[in-house]
Computed example of a mutant assay.
Amino acid sequence: MSRKRAVAQETGENVRGDGRKATEEPFTVKQQQPEKSCSATFIFLGKIVLLVFFVPPFLNYASLQREGQELRPKGAQMVDIGLGQKISLICKGQGQPVVILDAPTGMSSDIWHHVQESVSQATKVCAYDRAGLGFSRRAMQNETTGMEKVWQQSTSGRMVDDLHRLVKAAEIATPFILVGSELGALNGLFYSHVRDVQVSDLVLIDPIPEDIFEDESWQQYWSAHLVPSLQAMQLSAAAGASRLLLILGLLRPPLDGDAVPEDVLQRQKYLLSNPAHQSGAVDEHFFLNESLAQVREISKFKPLSTQISLSVITGDCFDEHLPTHLNQVFAERQSRALARIYPQASRIHIPGADRRVVYKKPSSVSKHLLELVSKRQTKQLRQ
């Protein structure tokens, strides 16, 4: 009996011991499980943060370094124009008069691809990237001296000064045909007013009216919508998001389609992913009002020479994506400004076109430029 009682007691103790372990073990697990769960959550969130905020910018930066060398336009020159500044210039074709192409606001010289290819069959055609855009870098501030300090960077005055030094450094034959779109048109006007002996023909494509920002609705659109959207594009490029959107097909370059060579298309994607280029585009839009004021003052100080042939190319509207009233304001102010300041201008209307005419309807632009080239070449032969 004593042995049975001892066995039973021993068994009871074991049961109680197992019972205590059974009750203690869940308690111990409950203490450790939240710690493991929180730790795993923090690690997972850390990986997400690393993936989203650090990896894309790093990969984008590494890709930009490689692409900057590989995608440089074939035949392009990096022309030293002094003051530590180099401008990317690409010329095609041979002969005179030379045609110089100045791109729309915030865009690189690639935008002229189709026009340049077409017109270069008849003469030499040069397109360049303004400072801060494409492959042209900004000058260091401490390397800027003399008259260049008068004009703030990313304004028409400074761009015209850069263009003048580019013409001299690249030894471009004068007088030439100067073609500009939007901000490029403002630069063309400024240049032709101050360097009239160097320009034989001036072609303005959708020139921006000098008083456009006096209209409140236009001012609101430009400062509250367009510039912030461009700043968002700059931030997206810096974060590497633009490259991801391009890969996914959610973002498309302005110049695309089957007729666009692969290297040009890849270069456009490179620029959309490049925060330096996007920064230049933001600045050109941000300081546009100052550029308009500079051109207005120059036109008062020195009228345009009557020896310069002036033509203006416009479409049905400024931008088909804008509300109708904004396009109407633009058209009315543009028409009044041209009639008041440049009544001698020849007006050319391209049906179905807007500000994208340079790369959406390039044949219409090329046709007019080829006519100008032919007239000048015929005149040279007679002389």
Rank of each mutant, 00 (worst) to 15 (best):
residue 2 S to L: 15
residue 3 R to N: 03
residue 3 R to C: 06
residue 8 A to Y: 08
residue 11 T to K: 14
residue 17 G to P: 01
residue 22 A to G: 15
residue 27 F to S: 07
residue 27 F to Q: 11
residue 28 T to K: 14
residue 31 Q to Y: 10
residue 40 A to F: 04
residue 40 A to S: 08
residue 49 V to A: 13
residue 51 L to P: 02
residue 51 L to A: 15
residue 53 F to G: 02
residue 56 P to C: 14
residue 61 Y to S: 11
residue 63 S to P: 00
residue 67 E to Q: 09
residue 68 G to R: 10
residue 71 L to V: 08
residue 75 G to T: 03
residue 76 A to F: 00
residue 83 L to S: 12
residue 87 I to R: 10
residue 92 K to L: 12
residue 94 Q to G: 09
residue 97 P to R: 13
residue 98 V to K: 03
residue 106 G to Q: 09
residue 108 S to Y: 00
residue 110 D to H: 13
residue 113 H to D: 09
residue 117 E to D: 08
residue 117 E to R: 06
residue 118 S to T: 14
residue 120 S to T: 08
residue 121 Q to W: 00
residue 124 K to H: 01
residue 124 K to V: 03
residue 124 K to R: 15
residue 124 K to W: 02
residue 127 A to V: 00
residue 128 Y to T: 02
residue 130 R to I: 03
residue 149 K to Q: 10
residue 152 Q to Y: 00
residue 156 S to P: 02
residue 159 M to Y: 06
residue 168 K to Q: 15
residue 171 E to C: 13
residue 172 I to P: 06
residue 175 P to R: 07
residue 176 F to K: 04
residue 181 S to D: 01
residue 181 S to T: 07
residue 182 E to N: 05
residue 182 E to I: 01
residue 182 E to Q: 05
residue 183 L to H: 09
residue 188 G to C: 12
residue 189 L to N: 04
residue 193 H to V: 09
residue 195 R to Y: 15
residue 195 R to W: 08
residue 200 S to V: 04
residue 203 V to P: 01
residue 206 D to Q: 05
residue 206 D to R: 01
residue 217 S to Q: 10
residue 217 S to I: 04
residue 218 W to S: 04
residue 220 Q to R: 14
residue 220 Q to F: 09
residue 222 W to F: 03
residue 222 W to A: 08
residue 224 A to V: 01
residue 229 S to M: 02
residue 231 Q to S: 05
residue 234 Q to I: 09
residue 237 A to W: 05
residue 238 A to H: 12
residue 238 A to Y: 12
residue 241 A to M: 13
residue 243 R to S: 09
residue 244 L to W: 11
residue 245 L to R: 11
residue 247 I to Q: 07
residue 248 L to D: 02
residue 249 G to P: 06
residue 249 G to H: 06
residue 252 R to C: 01
residue 253 P to M: 04
residue 254 P to L: 11
residue 259 A to T: 08
residue 264 V to F: 00
residue 268 Q to P: 00
residue 270 Y to N: 07
residue 272 L to N: 13
residue 276 A to F: 07
residue 281 A to F: 06
residue 283 D to I: 04
residue 286 F to C: 02
residue 286 F to K: 13
residue 287 F to K: 12
residue 287 F to Y: 15
residue 289 N to D: 12
residue 294 Q to E: 02
residue 298 I to G: 00
residue 301 F to K: 15
residue 304 L to Q: 06
residue 305 S to F: 09
residue 306 T to F: 05
residue 309 S to Q: 14
residue 318 F to E: 12
residue 318 F to I: 11
residue 325 H to F: 12
residue 328 Q to Y: 02
residue 341 I to C: 04
residue 344 Q to A: 03
residue 350 I to G: 06
residue 351 P to L: 15
residue 355 R to W: 11
residue 361 K to E: 11
residue 364 S to D: 15
residue 365 V to C: 09
residue 368 H to D: 14
residue 371 E to A: 05
residue 372 L to E: 02
